[in-house]
Nucleic acid binder design. Structure first.
Length: 765
RNA sequence: GGGGGUGUGGCGGAAUUGGUAGACGCGCUAGACUCAAAAUCUGGUUGGAAACAGUGUGGGUUCGAUUCCCACCGCCCCUACCA
């Protein structure tokens, strides 16, 4: 007799949930809402990885518990489907990106559905669909109208392999995060969003949200706010050199100035003319600017050359000091030049030693005097968001350039601006987008004056669509606006947001910026999109190494579902270890979880319709307390063990009371929803367990069987005694003293007795 | 260099306003069922015969320390010349 035919059970209930459309919430002002969200995946060709379900399951558990507690729960899912891998795939195979995307989404969706997540599938969003990116484009236009999007010629990081410009946030130690090639600098005309002007507000907003502390810290560090002063040093050849310093109090110790090589080129031209050693300067500068940042920072000994003949004057004490150029000074930060205080700044000190510059001790200014130096100034590491990508598979930027009117946004009626059909997705060596080849698309009319004009051919970065998807879920089928005010007012902010750590300084920061901008424009009610942010740890292969195709150690969720069932995979991924820690997969351990579910199914055949015993009620109360608390605390691994403890206890009897088992099934249901539905039905319930009320317990039940005290003598455990729940302290102490195994250790007079209610009696001698 | 985290049986891991160290599970082991095996069930499982010892190491505070304090060692992650 099969008591746990998980295949049949899981198919049956997945069909039931879908047919009844159980998890598609409607606005219902009589109920409190709860909005749970997992980052939507990029639908790669590889399909779902076992890492994906970890977050989905965790939030599914939270969502299911909240539903049972009476909340109106929105737990949606979709696909972030624009991006480079699909385009690379198209180049390699000739399969069109939208076709590949559709196939991949179908695969992902089938896999997700096979795991029984209570997603509101009716609200699915796909960022590469014109119905969706119509509104991404619309929002971009609003940002442009707010003055937050601008086009300028600037230096961008350029990946020579991907042939694409990339943002600072997409760099990994100076390399392209996608292909690991060293990036170069290239001058291009690109769109940027004024994210830097939101720096302070992005920091301030963190005080109003519940993110993990390290997430807040990473964002704050990334924004890199530093307060200081800008000081002007007059130059002997006229003009002056402006520098930023966080330590104006050290100005008396300035021994020399350093200008970044790029800044030298900008100030003195490609020939670096006008110095006594112009050839040397020119050679150094031109060699330096082609070196990557990685190369520069790996140089052990600092290098540089003097700008001979150029002298700067310290405005504080009138001292004349030499000026150098050196590549340890960064172009992109501050003014691209520094005042060097070798006595106090380690890097300046290293450079001074390398150059043989002598220096003495620095006299610090008083805080008051320091305030008088230069002009107060705040600098940020975070730059504006470079928003142009020279690729095909992204949202077209809905802008037109007219020689008369400049950059003009498309009128709303022309949205979505659909991606034109192209046959060749190959990037171009000159750095322009494949769209630039589509002449009849590029050439258009100016929306303002009707004259000849050209479309923008760059597309948006893959982070664009995910900036606002949480809003679209609230009202996914609205074709008049991106979401109605009513829907946004009701669903408000995301209450619980789960995602990967790698998005902390990208997606999470971008989405926060975007929301603030939209809120400023009056388009949305809240400026912080996510109230609480959590991260799940990675799932590694057996042995703790990364799963990879080349190592042939990838666990495919499909195989696990086929062999052990979705409920087993779900419960195992929760039981595998602390939610926020990286954990190694172990199929052997997973089988233990499978056994647990099997035993739960088997116990359903020993259910008797009788009153619950005191012991049963006690076990159930403990389980209800622990499971509830641990779900709320995101301690899913110990929540599962609480369920196991309860099951172990119930199995000891010949039978289990029906009411107790029913409550146990409720506690199990967020974790193993298919099995729970099946058992719930076997118990005679006609309605889904998904909306049954959560288990309430009576705290008195927990200790109804009595309390066990540990008795210690001098802090060492000597015995344990079981007493009635209402016994008073003096009586417990008396019982403890007379216990034989305790009494023999009381070899000298008792000094005092420490009594911890419900736990310990410690006799100090 | 800076920042964060972490160290507990054979393994994954429990236990923090200081209060039974090793929950729960895996593995192992003995037994039941079986011709046999798998599956399942029952018992055992930190070391030690025991007294005791035991949470990376060494100190400290305390009736009592995995938990708090000091110093040190190891591992992991993030970040990286930001003036």
């Amino acid at each position: 007799m099969t008591t746990y035919d998980f295949n049949a059970i899981e198919k049956k209930w997945q069909k039931y949930w879908e047919e009844k459309s159980l998890f598609n919430p409607k606005i219902d002002k009589s109920k409190k809402k709860f909005y749970a969200l997992c980052e939507f995946p990029y639908p790669s060709g590889a399909g779902l990885h076992v890492g994906h379900p970890r977050g989905y399951t965790a939030l599914d558990i939270v969502a299911r518990r909240k539903r049972m507690q009476g909340f109106n729960v929105l737990y949606p899912m979709g696909f972030d489907s624009f991006g480079l891998p699909t385009e690379h795939y198209a180049i390699k195979t000739g399969i069109r990106p939208e076709v590949a995307t559709e196939q991949n989404i179908a695969t992902f969706k089938a896999q997700m559905k096979s795991l029984g997540f209570s997603f509101a599938w009716e609200r699915e969003v796909i960022t590469s669909s014109p119905e969706y990116y119509r509104w991404t484009q619309w929002q971009f236009i609003q940002l442009f109208k707010l003055g937050l999007a601008y086009k300028e010629t600037t230096e961008v990081w350029w990946c020579p392999k991907c042939k694409i410009g990339i943002a600072n946030e997409e760099l990994e130690a100076g390399r392209c995060e996608r292909c690991d090639a060293e990036v170069e600098k290239k001058t291009r005309e690109i769109w940027s969003l004024k994210m830097q002007s939101y720096s302070d507000r992005l920091i301030e907003g963190l005080s109003r949200v519940d993110f993990l502390e390290n997430i807040k810290k990473m964002q704050i560090d990334w924004i890199g706010r530093s307060e200081g002063a800008e000081v002007e040093f007059p130059l002997s050849k006229g003009g002056s050199l402006r520098v930023f310093t966080t330590r104006p109090d050290t100005i008396a110790g300035v021994e020399f100035m350093v200008i970044s090589p790029e800044e030298v080129l900008e100030r003195f031209g490609p020939l670096c003319g006008g110095f006594d050693n112009s050839d040397e300067v020119c050679g150094y500068v031109n060699a330096a600017v082609v070196r990557t940042d990685v190369e520069r920072s790996q140089t052990k000994v600092k290098t540089g050359v003097p700008l001979a003949g150029l002298v700067a004057t310290n405005p504080y004490n009138g001292r004349e000091i030499p000026v150098y150029t050196a590549d340890y000074v960064l172009y992109g930060y501050g003014t691209g030049a520094i005042m060097a205080v070798p006595d106090l700044d380690e890097r300046d000190g290293e450079f001074a030693n390398a150059m043989g510059i002598k220096f003495g001790e620095t006299k610090l200014l008083s805080p008051d005097d320091a305030l008088k130096v230069g002009e107060r100034k705040v600098n940020y590491k975070m730059q504006d968001w470079q928003f142009s990508r020279q690729r095909y598979w992204g949202e077209p930027i809905p802008m037109v350039h007219c020689s008369m009117c400049g950059w003009v946004p498309l009128p709303e009626s022309e949205l979505p601006l659909k991606l034109p059909h192209v046959d060749n997705y190959l990037p171009t060596d000159d750095g322009s987008s494949p769209l630039a080849r589509v002449a009849d698309w590029v050439n258009t009319k100016c929306p303002t004056c009707g004259g000849a004009a050209k479309r923008e051919t760059d597309t948006m970065p893959m982070w664009a669509g995910s900036c606002w998807y949480y809003l679209r879920y609230m009202d996914a089928h609205n074709d008049r606006e991106f979401a109605s005010r009513e829907a946004m007012d009701y669903w408000g902010q995301v209450d619980l947001y789960n995602g990967g750590q790698e998005h902390t300084t990208r997606h999470l920061l971008y989405a926060r910026f975007w929301s603030k901008a939209l809120c400023d424009g009056g388009f949305i009610p809240n400026d912080e999109p996510f109230m609480r942010r959590i991260m799940h740890g990675m799932i590694l292969a057996e042995g703790g190494v990364k799963m990879s195709k080349s190592k042939n150690n990838v666990i495919n969720p499909n195989d696990i579902v086929a062999e052990y069932g979705a409920d087993t995979l779900r419960v195992y991924e929760m039981f595998i270890g602390p939610y926020d820690q990286a954990v190694a997969w172990s199929t052997e351990s997973m089988i233990g979880v499978h056994r647990f579910l099997k035993r739960a199914a088997a116990l359903s055949e020993r259910v008797e319709d009788r009153a619950a015993t005191v012991a049963e009620r006690s076990v159930l109360a403990v389980a209800a307390r622990d499971v509830s608390e641990r779900i709320d605390a995101l301690k899913f691994n110990t929540a599962v063990s609480a369920l196991m403890i309860a099951l172990n206890a119930f199995e000891e009897g010949d039978s289990v009371a029906k009411s107790v088992f029913a409550d146990f099934v409720k506690l199990l249901s967020p974790f193993a929803p298919h099995l729970a539905e099946e058992l719930w039905e076997r118990l005679g319930n006609a309605e889904s367990i998904a909306f049954a009320s959560w288990v309430e317990f009576d705290a008195a039940d927990i200790s109804a069987e009595g309390i066990v005290y540990v008795v210690q003598v001098g802090g060492k455990r000597r015995a344990e005694i079981s007493v009635g729940a209402d016994m008073d302290q003096a009586e417990v102490e008396r019982l403890a003293m007379v216990e034989e195994s305790v009494a023999k250790f009381i070899t000298s007079p008792v000094k005092k007795v420490i009594f911890v209610p419900g736990k310990i009696v410690n006799i100090v001698i």
